[in-house]
């Protein structure tokens, strides 16, 4: 293995990890507000198909991105209304969102399967990209990868250093106390859920406009679910999420690595790797029951109904 090969692998790991990072950043904010949205996969697929359709019809990838983000937000609003206003079970509603999104995306995308669009060109950042190895790995990507870097920084900053982050935390840890000091719990949760939807839509657009770039039914192939697991074993910490996303990017391209090293294993067995890795890491992390309880937002998955406060 030479340096070039390693550089290429790391570059690909970042590219493959980016959709996971984007969607996990949205989900972590959502979970910090105490809401577990299992509809990630559905929102991502809808983002992917709408982003693709918008870019395909208008010829502008930028409009595709905007369309995908809006679609993700609309999807998340359905979820938000059901769980926040009607007190529906978050697990069941999230599953419904995924089933709905999977079906609807296949339905509206049926006509454009196999078409391609002009995606984003890589932007090579001057000077920084000249750093040996790291420069090539980090700074020769397309726009959305840089956006994901920036989003990771912004989310970490807002969540940990600002008043907004504190409110979010208060709502997620103890909505009753937050309500008592005058925070509008449902409004905060609406915002958090919609941010999650926007990021899921963006992540979908990355899949259909940059990564492939085309629309294929079910093209997210479980990334929404892996992102959910990623948030758990990153212990709701942004830095860990970033690292985890790239590790999973690496796991997803392992078949290329092994082929490069001259191994021959069934591609179907290698395709299991990200899912197996998810299970293994989840087992290792959550075996420490105490730690997980300590780190998870305390009201995660529990409904909050201001009607019953009076």
């Amino acid at each position: 293995m030479d340096i070039d090969f390693i550089t290429q692998i790391l570059f690909a790991a970042i590219k493959t990890g980016t959709p996971l990072l984007l969607i996990a950043l949205g989900e972590v904010i959502c979970e910090k507000s105490g809401v577990l949205n299992l509809g990630q996969e559905g929102m991502m697929l809808m983002g992917a198909v709408v982003g693709f359709l918008a870019a395909y019809t208008t010829g502008s990838a930028g409009l595709g991105i905007i369309g995908a983000i809006l679609m993700g937000m609309i999807m998340s609003l359905i979820f938000a209304f059901l769980v926040l206003h009607l007190g529906a079970n978050q697990v069941a509603t999230g599953l419904a969102l995924t089933i709905f999104g999977t079906g609807l995306s296949a339905f509206v995308g049926a006509d454009v399967v196999g078409q391609t669009v002009q995606g984003f060109q890589p932007i090579i950042i001057p000077l920084l990209s000249d750093i040996p190895i790291l420069g090539k790995v980090l700074f020769t990507h397309d726009l959305l990868v840089y956006v994901s870097f920036a989003m990771a920084g912004a989310v970490a900053y807002v969540a940990n250093k600002t008043r907004t982050g504190l409110i979010l935390k208060a709502v997620g840890e103890n909505p009753h106390a937050a309500n008592a000091i005058g925070i509008k719990v449902l409004r905060v949760r609406y915002c958090a859920i919609m941010f999650g939807g926007a990021m899921a839509g963006l992540s979908g657009a990355y899949m259909s406009l940059v990564y492939t770039p085309m629309w294929i039914e079910n093209m997210s192939s479980g990334r929404g679910w892996i992102a959910l697991a990623l948030v758990v074993f990153a212990s709701w910490r942004i830095g860990n999420i970033m690292l985890g996303a790239y590790l999973f990017g690496l796991a997803s391209i392992m078949h290329l690595v092994l082929q490069g090293m001259g191994w021959s294993i069934s591609p179907n067995l290698l395709a299991m790797l990200p899912y197996v890795a998810t299970v293994v890491v989840m087992v290792i992390i959550s075996a420490d029951h105490f730690k997980e309880k300590l780190l998870a937002p305390r009201s995660l998955g529990k409904p909050f109904d201001p009607r019953q406060m009076a």
């Binding site: 009607l86 529906a88 709905f100 296949a106």
Partner: peptide, 22 residues
């Protein structure tokens, strides 16, 4: 009509069910 319409109806059905359960 694409067969995917069945999957979409299933999702919609579950949404309405959860809403009606309110």
């Amino acid at each position: 009509i694409p067969i995917a319409v069945v999957g979409m109806f299933q999702g919609v059905l579950l949404f309405f069910l959860l809403a009606c359960d309110f």
